[in-house]
């Protein structure tokens, strides 16, 4: 780790001001950023912690929308969204281990947009918006490929709004070592149709599987996906699975999510 300054603002305004400094970067739970810094692969000059900003914390549901503060931990979402949006609560409760969930935040996870992270599937699958200090970004516009998002330099995720569907479920197939998704599917059914978001599989990061969405919109059952196939082209290949295997898992996990959603 290189030397850095740590600031711990209590308001979004203070945080944004601190982030305008040279080489400044937000610090959420540090579950991704700190290990990267320990390996000297990142050298921010200033870390602006979100953990002291009360307005960025908490979970509330109203009008069919679940609003989660950008600095809310996975553990809090798992506990507090359990009745309002159980599928999302389950997703949060399945991230890492208790230590990770007690630190890691929804804002950090989405800003990082790891191609194997859970939350991107939850947000893209639910539809909704990422609220920042300057604007609202629709879920469909937010994710722009592996580790890339629509966020500008210094822009802070202050909250995330998830549309609460009629039914939803998240089916995660864990990578054996990291236990991140090797491939996972988030399926949500609303009155407008079905959304299917896949994480862990594609070299482009999280994506919507539109063929499955169409098939499921007319018949919300696992069988509806049977006839579909996923192209292995563009899928991730690594020591844990070939592109063909991941393409296969896309379908299996989608079916499982549909079944789990009921």
């Amino acid at each position: 780790m290189y030397d850095f300054e740590l600031v711990k603002p209590t308001t979004v305004e203070e945080a944004v001001a601190a982030l305008s400094g040279d080489e400044a970067q937000p610090l959420g739970g540090g579950q991704t950023l700190i290990p990267t810094m320990k390996q000297r692969l990142a050298m921010p000059g200033t870390l602006v912690s979100t953990s002291g900003i009360a307005s960025m914390k908490g979970v509330s549901a109203s009008g069919g929308v679940l609003t989660v503060g950008g600095a809310t931990t996975h553990g809090t979402v798992a506990a507090e969204a359990a009745s309002s949006y159980p599928a999302l609560a389950a997703l949060a409760g399945g991230i890492g281990d208790p230590a990770v969930r007690n630190r890691g935040t929804v804002g950090g996870s989405l800003a990082n947009n790891d191609p194997a992270a859970c939350y991107p599937a939850g947000l893209l699958g639910s539809g909704g918006v990422v609220v920042t200090n300057t604007r609202e970004i629709a879920a469909d516009d937010f994710f722009q490929g592996m580790f890339t998002t629509a966020l500008e330099e210094g822009e802070l995720i202050t909250a995330v709004k998830f549309n609460i569907p009629e039914k939803a479920a998240y089916a995660k197939f864990a990578q054996p070592a990291s236990r991140f998704p090797l491939t996972a599917a988030f399926v949500a059914k609303t009155s407008d149709g079905v959304r299917v978001a896949i994480t862990g599989a594609s070299e482009e990061g999280v994506f919507r599987w539109t063929e499955a969405e169409e098939a499921l919109s007319s018949n919300f059952s696992a069988d509806a996906v049977d006839g579909l196939s996923v192209d292995a082209d563009g899928m991730i290949g690594d020591i844990h699975g070939t592109p063909a295997y991941r393409a296969h898992l896309v379908k299996v996990m989608t079916k499982r999510a549909v079944t789990a959603a009921g």
């Binding site: 070592a177 990291s178 020591i239």
Partner: peptide, 11 residues
Amino acid sequence: LVSASFMDYAM
């Protein structure tokens, strides 16, 4: 070394 951490080396 591809499996150089617990992210890729499964215990």
